[in-house]
Design a binder for these strands. Structure first.
Length: 575
RNA sequence: GGCCCGGUAGUUCAGUUGGUUAGAACGCUAGCCUGUCACGCUAGAGGUCAUGAGUUCGAGCCUCAUUCGGGUCGCCA
C-alpha cells in the first residue's frame, strides 16, 4: 500500500473525451480488469463515470512495469501519465479511443477477491449482491442509475424552486394516523408506553403549511409504511411531495405537466405532449379494468352483458341477473400462440389470484373454432358477440362473468397486462403518460361495514357531487387524480377540503363520531377554523419515477441500500 | 397469513431412469506471450450438492421437516 503523496486526481474517465491528447493527467479508481500481454500491460480503471485504460509498455521503466504487473482486480490505484490515442481503438467503451501512457502509479489499496465479479453482464443472486451491496454498487449500471436518480431529484428541485415552491422540512416523529397503512412506531423515552409514528407521508403538515400562508410547498421526503414488500414497493421510499394554495384541479395538473415535460426532456431527451391525456376513473375501469391502465396496447375490455343476459349459459345470464356483468377481451391474432394449454394456465391465474370463477373462451384458428361456451348460445347471440368484439379467424375471445363487477375488472385488467407482456404486444421504447381523474371519494369496506376514504378523509368531493356525500356515498366522486405512466401509478393527489362544515360532513359519512374526529384530527380541524385558502397537491414516488424512466422492473435497482422481502437489510442485518 | 418458484465450485449454471471418481464457463493461482480491451495459449487449485431426518443395496436426484432467497394474493387511506 502506498499513499497518494502529492498526487491528486485531475480527471474522471468521462473527462477524457474533452481533454486534448498530450495532456498530463491523473486518474483514480478501482482496477476493473487487467490484461497482461507479456511485455505489454493494460489496466482498466473504473471510476464513477466510467472506464479508462492505463498502458504500460516499451517506454515504461522496469520498476513501474513490475508494479503494474502486481496490481489485482478491485485494487485501488491512482495513475499519472500522458493522454494519447490508442493504436487500436474500440467503440465498446466510451473512452475506447484513448489511453494513458503511465509515468507514475500509486497502489493505494489492496483488495481481497470480491465474492462475485463486479460486472454488469453478470447476474448475481440477489441476496449475495445485497449482502455486499457496497461492491454491487461499484457496477457501472448502478452508478449510472444513482446518478440519473440524482438528476431527476435536481430537476424537481430546480423546477419547483423556479415556480416559487418553498422546500420546508416536516417532522419524522409524528402522531400515528388511524386509517391507511400500518405505521412504523418509535418508543418515546420521555413518555413511557407512548410511541411516535414515522410518517406515511407529510400529508397533514403540508396542508397546515397552506393554512400558514406558504402558498407553495415542496419537499423530497422519505416516507414509511409497514406493509409487505413488492417488486415496486419498499417500506421506506422517497416522495416528491408538493402542495399549492389558491388552486383547483386544472392548476395542479398544469404545474405538474410542466415538471414532467422537463424531467423527460432533461433526463431522457424526450419531448412529451402536454397537456396530458385525461381519463376518468370510470372510463379506465370500463375500458382497461384498472385505475392505472397501461395504454401502450389495446386488448380493451368490452361489456357483453346485454347480449348474453338471456342466454342459455347460466354462468353469463346468472352473473348479469345478480347485478354483475360479462366482459371480454379479444386477443387479436393470438389464436396460434394462445393454445388450449396456455388458456388453461391463464384460467388458473384468473381463478387463483383474481377470484374469477373461470375464464370462458373461443379460439378461432384456420382449422377450427372451439369454444367453452358457444354451445349454450344461440347463433344470433354468437353473431352479435362476434360483431361487437370484431372477432375473426386468428383471434381468441376471453370472457369473465361475475356477479361482482369488480372481479371482472380485476381479472381482465390483469389478463390484458399478462397477455401484452407475454406476447410482446407493445413498443417497449414508448412512454404513455395520463391523468386518471374523478376517483370515487369513498370505498365501501365489507369488513368494517362502513365507508372508507379512498384517498384520504380530507379529499374534496367534486362540486356537482357534494350532496352525494350523504345521499349516495358510493357514487360520490372526488377531486382526486393520479399520474399513470406505462401502467404504473407514479403519483397522486387531490384538492383538499377547506371548509370545516364540509369536513364535518365528511367525518360523519366515514362513521367518525365528533369526539373521535376531534381526538385524532383535532389540531387539523381547529386549524381550518382560522381561514383556509383552497388548496391541493400531489406526491410522486421518486423511486418509481426513476424505475419508469430507466425501464427497470425492480425498485431495489434504484435505491442504494434497499430492503429485501421480509423488510430486513441484508448488508447490515437490520432490524 | 395463503399460494407458487428456487438453493450444486468464489460466481453463473448443467447434472439423463436413483448407479463408478459430481461437470462446464467465468473468476482465482502459476508459466508463456508487444496492442489487448470478455486478450490468447498451457497447467493447476477449488465441492459438507442449503441444513436435518427418512426411503433404498445405493440419494445431488425421491419423501418430510427446517432454513435462506425470490414472485404473487391479502395488505399498500
Amino acid at each position: 500500500m502506498e499513499s497518494m503523496g502529492t498526487l491528486r486526481r485531475t480527471h474522471y474517465a468521462a473527462d477524457l473525451l474533452k481533454t486534448p491528447v498530450g495532456a498530463e493527467i491523473t486518474v483514480a479508481g478501482y482496477v476493473a480488469r487487467s490484461r497482461d500481454l507479456g511485455n505489454l500491460i493494460f489496466i482498466d480503471v473504473r471510476d464513477v463515470t466510467g472506464l479508462v485504460q492505463l498502458a504500460f509498455g516499451d517506454s515504461t521503466p522496469q520498476e513501474l512495469f513490475n508494479k503494474a504487473k502486481a496490481v489485482k482486480s478491485e485494487n485501488v490505484v491512482m495513475a499519472k501519465g500522458v493522454l494519447r490515442e490508442r493504436s487500436s481503438k474500440t467503440d465498446k467503451i466510451a473512452t475506447g479511443a484513448y489511453e494513458i501512457d503511465v509515468t507514475e502509479l500509486r497502489h493505494l489499496s489492496g483488495a481481497e477477491l470480491p465474492p462475485f465479479e463486479i460486472r454488469d453482464e453478470i447476474n448475481v443472486r440477489d441476496d449475495l449482491a445485497l449482502t455486499y451491496r457496497y461492491l454491487d454498487l461499484r457496477r457501472p449500471s448502478m452508478a449510472r442509475t444513482l446518478i440519473l436518480r440524482n438528476k431527476i431529484a435536481m430537476c424537481a428541485r430546480n423546477y419547483f424552486y423556479e415556480n416559487h415552491f418553498i422546500d420546508i422540512e416536516t417532522p419524522y416523529l409524528i402522531k400515528s394516523t388511524p386509517e391507511g397503512a400500518r405505521d412504523y412506531l418509535v418508543p418515546a423515552r420521555l413518555h413511557p408506553g407512548h410511541f411516535y409514528a414515522l410518517p406515511q407521508s407529510p400529508q397533514l403538515y403540508k396542508q397546515l403549511l397552506m393554512l400558514s400562508g406558504f402558498d407553495r410547498y415542496f419537499q423530497i421526503v422519505r416516507c414509511f409504511r409497514d406493509e409487505d414488500l413488492r417488486a415496486d414497493r419498499q417500506p421506506e421510499f422517497t416522495q416528491i411531495d408538493l402542495e399549492m394554495a389558491y388552486v383547483d384541479i386544472d392548476d395542479v395538473l398544469a404545474v405538474n405537466e410542466g415538471f414532467l415535460k422537463r424531467v423527460f426532456k432533461e433526463v431522457l431527451g424526450r419531448d412529451i405532449e402536454t397537456p396530458l391525456r385525461r381519463m376518468t376513473y370510470k372510463e379506465a375501469m370500463e375500458r382497461f379494468g384498472s385505475d392505472k391502465p397501461d395504454t401502450r396496447f389495446g386488448l380493451e375490455l368490452t361489456d357483453l352483458s346485454d347480449l348474453v343476459k338471456d342466454s342459455g349459459f347460466s354462468v353469463f345470464s346468472g352473473a348479469v341477473a345478480a347485478g354483475g356483468g360479462v366482459r371480454a377481451i379479444n386477443a387479436k391474432g393470438l389464436a396460434d400462440r394462445l393454445t388450449r394449454k396456455e388458456i388453461d394456465k391463464l384460467t388458473e391465474l384468473m381463478k387463483g389470484h383474481y377470484k374469477a370463477k373461470g375464464l370462458a373462451y373461443t379460439r378461432f384458428t384456420a382449422d377450427a373454432r372451439s369454444s367453452s361456451f358457444e354451445k349454450f348460445l344461440s347463433p344470433e347471440e354468437i353473431a352479435a358477440v362476434d360483431a361487437r368484439m370484431d372477432f375473426a379467424e386468428g383471434d381468441v375471445l376471453l370472457i369473465v362473468a361475475d356477479a361482482n363487477r369488480q372481479i371482472t375488472y380485476d381479472a381482465l385488467g390483469a389478463l390484458r397486462v399478462e397477455l401484452a407482456h407475454k406476447y410482446g404486444l407493445f413498443d417497449k421504447d414508448r412512454f404513455d403518460l395520463l391523468w386518471i381523474t374523478e376517483f370515487p371519494l369513498f370505498e365501501y369496506s365489507e369488513e368494517d361495514g362502513r365507508y372508507h376514504a379512498k384517498h384520504h378523509p380530507f379529499t374534496m368531493p367534486m362540486d356537482e357531487d357534494l350532496e352525494l356525500v350523504e345521499s349516495d356515498p358510493g357514487a360520490c366522486r372526488a377531486k382526486a387524480y393520479d399520474i399513470v405512466i406505462n401502467g404504473t401509478e407514479a403519483g397522486g393527489g387531490s384538492i383538499r377540503i377547506n371548509d370545516p362544515a364540509l369536513q364535518r360532513r365528511m367525518f360523519k359519512a366515514l362513521g367518525f363520531t365528533e369526539e373521535r374526529a376531534q381526538q385524532q384530527f383535532g389540531f387539523l380541524i381547529d386549524a381550518y377554523k382560522y381561514g383556509a385558502p383552497p388548496h391541493g397537491g400531489l406526491a410522486y414516488g421518486l423511486d418509481r419515477l426513476v424505475m419508469l424512466l430507466l425501464q427497470l422492473d425492480d425498485i431495489r435497482d434504484v435505491i442504494a441500500f434497499p430492503k429485501i422481502q421480509n423488510a430486513s437489510e441484508l448488508m447490515s442485518g437490520a432490524p
